[in-house]
Simulated assay, not measured.
Amino acid sequence: MHLNEKVIVITGGGQGLGRAMALFLAEKGATPVLIDMNSQALEETVRLCHEKGVQARAYIANIADEAAVEEVFGNIVRDLGAIHGLINNAGITRDAMFIKAKDGEVSKRMSLEQWQQVINVNLTGVFLCGREAATKMIEGGNEGVIINISSISRAGNMGQSNYSAAKAGVVALTTTWGKELARYGIRTGAIAPGFIATEMVMSMKPEALDKMAASIPAKRLGEPSEIASAVAFILENDYFTGRVIEVDGGLRL
């Protein structure tokens, strides 16, 4: 896919990795379309995209709400004519141990609310947005690409039963959709980042950051632009589909 003037939807596009993706794709002439719940962050990302000389749009929507997802994707097609790409980037964490016990006494368990909140956004939201994007691509008669952002934690990470399950799930969706959607000219891909230097991560204490970096074979955190460049690779390489790219500096949990 040539990215010039292509409409690329990015969930969680207001900040962090989503903003980095939007700006990277803007430099290639794409039209970033940002979905987020944070209106202030959305406005800032749109402004930064405009500074790069491209059109950008922002929409506020809860991606875990089916009706909201259907409405926002309908509005995007109405406003811009088509959808050529979707990056399912939005995600949350609600970390907790599955079970905490001492001397045979269970003191704490991951709550159903902690489980469900993460599954709703990180897995159901991916399903809903992916389904709607594919629908609009097929109805519009245009080929497209759906990219799901997974995580190194998909292999299983202590304190993240909910997050790990969701991020493993989106890789399974990627493979399944790659097989099902190829007949319609729709490709899929997933990216599994390791520890990336987003604003949230960099707000940690310096000693914690140093310890984190020391555990990575590359001896540093990844840059948001390095995840964005992997996104661009999947979008631009027409023979890539149904697979996951690991961008983790060689780290294995």
Rank of each mutant, 00 (worst) to 15 (best):
M1W: 02
H2I: 11
L3H: 05
L3Y: 08
N4D: 12
N4M: 09
E5K: 10
E5R: 08
I8A: 10
G12A: 05
G12M: 03
G12V: 05
G13L: 03
G14V: 08
L17D: 06
G18M: 03
R19H: 05
M21S: 06
M21E: 13
L25K: 05
K28S: 08
G29M: 06
P32K: 03
I35S: 11
N38C: 08
A41S: 15
A41W: 07
L42T: 11
E43A: 15
E43P: 10
K52Q: 12
K52P: 07
G53C: 07
G53H: 04
G53K: 08
V54F: 06
Q55R: 14
A56W: 03
A58M: 12
A61F: 04
N62Y: 03
A64I: 03
A64L: 05
D65N: 15
D65A: 07
E66K: 14
V69D: 08
E71H: 12
V72A: 09
F73I: 04
G74N: 08
V77N: 02
R78Y: 01
D79L: 03
L80K: 02
G85A: 14
I87P: 09
I87L: 15
A90M: 06
D95H: 02
A96S: 14
A101L: 06
K102Q: 08
G104W: 01
L112W: 09
Q117W: 03
C129G: 12
G130W: 04
G130T: 13
R131E: 11
R131L: 13
E132F: 09
A133P: 12
K136N: 13
M137D: 06
M137P: 11
G141E: 06
Y163W: 04
S164D: 09
S164N: 10
A166T: 07
A168K: 05
L173W: 01
T175R: 14
G178A: 03
L181D: 01
A182L: 00
G185D: 00
I186Q: 00
R187S: 01
G189D: 02
A190Y: 01
I191P: 01
I191N: 01
I191Q: 01
I191S: 01
A192K: 00
G194F: 00
I196W: 00
I196V: 09
A197E: 04
S203W: 01
M204W: 12
K205Y: 08
P206I: 10
E207T: 13
L209V: 12
A214Y: 07
A214H: 13
A214Q: 15
A214L: 11
S215G: 13
I216T: 14
P217Y: 12
L221T: 11
G222V: 10
G222P: 11
E223Q: 15
E226F: 05
E226C: 13
E226M: 09
I227Y: 05
I227G: 10
A228R: 08
V231S: 08
F233M: 15
F233P: 10
L235C: 06
E236W: 03
D238T: 14
G242C: 11
G242D: 06
I245F: 07
E246A: 13
V247F: 04
V247K: 04
G249L: 07
R252S: 12
L253S: 00
